[in-house]
C-alpha cells in the first residue's frame, strides 16, 4: 500500500468508527468490535517479533495481563478516575521492560528457548498475581468504571474509540517498522541469523528492540481491559485463549508482511464473534485451534502468501 492510500484508509477507519458511535445504540456491537480490535493489537504486536524476526512468543497472555494489572494497581493507588491514557503509557513501559528483560536473558540462545521462556514468564506472573492481595489475588478484582465518558453516549463507546485509535497506532508502527532499515535487519535475522550477523546486522540489538516494542504493544492492549470487563482475576487475564489468538491471527493472515496480522485478526476475530453468538463459545475456541494447525501445515505463508501465489500465477 502506498503512503497516501495507507493514511487515507487509516483516517477512513477512524471516521467510520466515530460514525458508528453516532448511529448505533446497541452496546453489544461495541463490545464485539472492542474484542476484535483488542485481538488485532495483540496480533500486530506478536508479529513484530514472531513474524518479522521468527521468534515465537507463547506468553502473549502474560504481557496482556501484566498490562491489565498495571491499570488495576494504578486504579487502586490513585482512585478509579485516574486518567486512562496514563495507565496505558504505564502499561507500555512495564511490559516493554519485561520484553526487554526476557529478551536479554534468552534471545542470545536458540529461538526455542525464548519460546519456552515466554511460557514460563506468563506462569511466573500469574503466580505473582495470584499471591498479590493488593490487586485482588486469586479471588480477582472488581473495577468501577468512571462516570464520565467524554462526549460519547456510553462508556463502552468511548473504550471502543480508544481501542480503535490504539489499533490504528499499532498498525502504523508495524508498517513503519516493516519498511524501515530496522525491519530489513529483522527480516535478515528471520531468514538466516548467522548470515545476518556476518553481514554486520547487530542481531541482538535488533531482537531486543523488537521484543521491547512487542511487549509494550501487548501491555497497551491489556491496559483498558479491566475497564472493559469490570472484573479481572488471574485465570481470565492470563487465559491461554489470548495467547493462542495472538499466534493464530498472524499465522492465518501471513507473517511476513505487516498487513498479514491485520487481515488474520479481522477475519478470525469476526468469525469468532459470529460463532460465539450462533453456535457456542467452546466451538469458537476449537475453531481457532484447528484453523491454526490447518494453516501452518497447509499454507505456512498465510492468506497473504496465498494471494501472492495467486497473483504470481495470473501474471505468468
Amino acid at each position: 500500500m502506498k503512503g497516501r492510500a495507507f493514511w487515507l484508509s487509516m483516517v477512513a477507519a477512524l471516521v467510520a468508527g466515530l460514525l458508528l458511535t453516532h448511529f448505533i445504540d446497541n452496546d453489544y456491537y461495541f463490545n464485539a468490535l472492542y474484542v476484535i480490535l483488542q485481538g488485532t493489537v495483540m496480533a500486530v504486536a506478536w508479529n513484530i517479533l514472531g513474524g518479522f524476526t521468527g521468534y515465537v512468543n507463547f506468553g502473549s497472555a502474560g504481557f496482556f495481563a501484566v498490562g491489565a494489572y498495571t491499570s488495576i494497581a494504578l486504579g487502586k493507588a490513585f482512585g478509579q478516575d485516574f486518567p486512562l491514557p496514563i495507565m496505558i503509557m504505564a502499561a507500555a513501559l512495564v511490559c516493554g521492560l519485561i520484553g526487554l528483560g526476557l529478551g536479554y536473558l534468552t534471545l542470545r540462545l536458540k529461538g526455542v528457548y525464548f519460546s519456552i521462556a515466554t511460557l514460563a514468564m506468563a506462569i511466573v506472573f500469574e503466580t505473582l498475581m495470584n499471591n498479590w492481595a493488593y490487586v485482588g489475588g486469586a479471588r480477582g478484582a472488581y473495577i468501577l468504571t468512571p462516570d464520565s465518558h467524554l462526549w460519547f453516549n456510553s462508556y463502552i463507546e468511548m473504550l471502543f474509540v480508544l481501542m480503535l485509535l490504539l489499533t490504528l497506532g499499532s498498525i502504523a508502527i508495524s508498517r513503519a517498522l516493516n519498511a524501515s532499515r530496522l525491519g530489513r535487519g529483522l527480516a535478515a535475522i528471520r531468514d538466516d541469523e548467522v548470515a545476518a550477523e556476518c553481514a554486520g546486522v547487530p542481531t541482538l540489538k535488533l531482537k531486543l528492540i523488537s521484543a521491547t516494542i512487542m511487549g509494550a504493544m501487548m501491555g497497551v492492549a491489556g491496559a483498558p481491559y479491566p475497564y472493559f470487563v469490570t472484573f479481572v482475576d488471574p485465570a481470565s487475564a492470563f487465559s491461554l485463549f489470548v495467547a493462542v489468538n495472538a499466534i493464530a491471527m498472524p499465522m492465518i493472515g501471513g507473517t511476513a508482511h505487516w498487513i498479514g496480522p491485520v487481515i488474520g485478526a479481522l477475519l478470525v476475530g469476526t468469525a469468532q464473534q459470529v460463532i460465539t453468538v450462533t453456535v457456542s463459545s467452546e466451538l469458537n475456541v476449537l475453531f481457532v485451534g484447528i484453523m491454526l494447525v490447518v494453516f501452518i501445515s497447509m499454507a505456512p505463508q498465510g492468506i497473504v502468501g496465498l494471494v501472492q501465489k495467486f497473483r504470481a500465477r495470473r501474471a505468468r
Binding site: 507463547f58 493462542v244 499466534i247 499465522m251 485451534g289 505456512p300
Partner: peptide, 29 residues
C-alpha cells in the same frame, strides 16, 4: 509439513501449540 521443508523452528512450534490447544478443548467439550 515442517521438517522436510526446514520450517520446524517457527511453524513447528506453533503446530504443537495448536495441537495442545485442540487436545485441551476437545477434553473440555
Amino acid at each position: 509439513a515442517f521438517e522436510r521443508t526446514g520450517q520446524e523452528s517457527l511453524s513447528g512450534l506453533a503446530f504443537f501449540f495448536g495441537l495442545m490447544f485442540i487436545i485441551e478443548v476437545l477434553l473440555i467439550m
